[in-house]
Amino acid sequence: MKHFGHLIVVALLRTLAILPYKWVARLGSAVGAALYALPSRRKHIVLVNLHLCFPARSEHERDELAKDHFRHVVRSYLERGVQWFGSAEKINKLVQIESAIDLDDVNAPPTIFMGFHFVGIEVGCLHYSLKMPAASLYTHMSNKRLCDLARRQRGRFGAEMIERSTSAKKIVRLLQGGKPVMLAADMDHGIENSVFVPFFGIPACTLTSVSRLAKMGGARVVPFVTEVLPNFEGYKLTVFAALSDFPSGSDTNDARCMNAFLESQILKFPAQYYWVHRRFKHRPAGMPAVY
């Protein structure tokens, strides 16, 4: 039955890949709005996160934001069809790019591209891998078939997919060998190799891997964000200038810097950040659980 279910998922994604993008996007948005009307654990997590991060907003405003977020999240799942199975030509047509650095510079210094979990992150990474060879860190999924599928399709344009738990020495070798590394460190992966720093004023368990890898590899850290454009027009990948004084020598200061940058981007399109994740899963000693 598990094998049959996997085949259905693949068939559905392949079908979605050949349909017009706007049809798929509209369908995902409608399904997301319908699912928001139902009680669910994920809806509870979203509302808790928004209550913590936007306490000044009214309950009605947070509810509307949560509903819009559900539309974006479910839509992003359906858009995996074109992202995982669409042609390079189709993806190039869907993604606009704006970069503060020269992405074609063959003499660029070792570079860590630091992404964040906005709903469009996958297509941004795919689009970059069409331009330049890169390595991309991923988190292993509990469903092996789905994990294998995701790794294969995310890397089909030449990106070298590396599991997050791999040796830091391997990542440093890639950086020093001239291959950029793409990663995201804005989720709660546990207190090991993490520090508690503010995220919208709430202590958030934040990974220190970015600054540690940058220090070991002598790499610059370049943030990037992928925005879902309005009116179902596709996506915009924005690549920013490298962070200044990063790494600073203090993992805590670097984590604060990373979260502050992320906050500034979330405020531009808050419904697109991945609020369904338990961002405050781990809490400092003595602080109560929130979910």
Rank of each mutant, 00 (worst) to 15 (best):
residue 160 E to K: 15
residue 140 H to K: 15
residue 181 V to G: 06
residue 188 D to C: 12
residue 198 P to Y: 06
residue 153 Q to E: 08
residue 172 V to P: 11
residue 150 A to R: 13
residue 151 R to N: 02
residue 185 A to N: 08
residue 199 F to H: 07
residue 191 I to H: 10
residue 135 A to K: 03
residue 196 F to M: 02
residue 166 T to H: 14
residue 205 C to Y: 02
residue 175 L to N: 03
residue 186 D to H: 10
residue 186 D to S: 11
residue 171 I to G: 04
residue 203 P to W: 13
residue 135 A to N: 01
residue 210 V to S: 05
residue 206 T to M: 02
residue 142 S to K: 14
residue 152 R to F: 01
residue 154 R to T: 00
residue 208 T to I: 15
residue 196 F to E: 00
residue 196 F to T: 01
residue 167 S to K: 13
residue 187 M to F: 10
residue 174 L to M: 12
residue 140 H to E: 14
residue 209 S to M: 15
residue 156 R to H: 02
residue 161 M to I: 15
residue 147 C to R: 09
residue 153 Q to C: 03
residue 203 P to G: 13
residue 198 P to D: 12
residue 164 R to I: 13
residue 155 G to R: 07
residue 143 N to V: 07
residue 191 I to V: 14
residue 196 F to R: 03
residue 140 H to L: 15
residue 178 G to T: 03
residue 200 F to V: 11
residue 185 A to W: 10
residue 197 V to T: 14
residue 208 T to V: 15
residue 180 P to R: 05
residue 168 A to D: 12
residue 173 R to G: 05
residue 137 L to I: 00
residue 163 E to A: 10
residue 191 I to A: 13
residue 193 N to K: 12
residue 184 A to K: 10
residue 176 Q to R: 15
residue 176 Q to Y: 08
residue 207 L to M: 15
residue 164 R to H: 14
residue 148 D to Y: 07
residue 149 L to I: 03
residue 162 I to S: 11
residue 169 K to L: 11
residue 132 M to R: 06
residue 210 V to G: 06
residue 186 D to Y: 10
